[in-house]
């Protein structure tokens, strides 16, 4: 057995019109796509090329093996395409799920905010109580001042007037 010298003795003897030397080269290089394109599937294993090969290469056996390889390769290619299709579908479903969850979370957040805002708006202003207390204190001071003026307690009247001033003017 010697290397293929591409003498071409195999070409005219092939009943299927194949180029066995190129086929052999493609298979030796592991290029199954090229071997397939060169018509490997049409090889009928008649051994004509092998019988005429000056390098006594095991062409027919290699071509049979190549046909099996191409078959496996085609199956693997189909399987890989199916896997890829499934992966794409899984990916798209997951993306859709994630987007839906995100949208839902956003909506819930928006609703929580609206609810909080509604509660805040319904509550009376925070300083109402303080004002009422101060009004009551003013009224009490006024009544005490009236009483002190009627009883002529000048000293108490001055103290109460100062306290009323310290409390500030009525709003």
């Amino acid at each position: 057995m010697m290397p293929c010298i591409h003498c071409g003795a195999c070409v005219p003897v092939c009943p299927k019109g194949l180029w066995p030397n190129q086929l052999y080269e493609a298979l030796a290089q592991g290029d199954l796509a090229r071997a397939d394109a060169l018509g490997l599937a049409r090889c009928g294993a008649c051994r004509a090329c092998q019988d005429h090969c000056p390098s006594t290469l095991p062409l027919t056996a290699r071509f049979r093996e190549g046909q099996r390889q191409v078959l496996r390769w085609t199956e693997a290619k189909t399987r890989a395409a199916e896997d890829a299709q499934q992966a794409a579908e899984r990916y798209e479903a997951r993306e859709a799920r994630l987007q839906a969850a995100e949208a839902e979370a956003l909506e819930a957040k928006r609703q929580r905010r609206a609810e909080a805002k509604r509660r805040t708006d319904a509550r009376p202003p925070a300083d109402n109580g303080a004002d009422a207390r101060r009004d009551a204190q003013r009224a009490a001071l006024q009544r005490a001042m009236d009483k002190a003026r009627a009883e002529g307690r000048e000293e108490d009247l001055a103290r109460l007037t100062a306290a009323l001033a310290a409390l500030g003017a009525a709003p």
Binding site: I5, G8, W19
Partner: peptide, 11 residues
């Protein structure tokens, strides 16, 4: 046969 083209049309 070795050098250059290896197919009938190529040759």
């Amino acid at each position: 046969p070795v050098s250059g083209a290896h197919t009938p049309p190529g040759r």
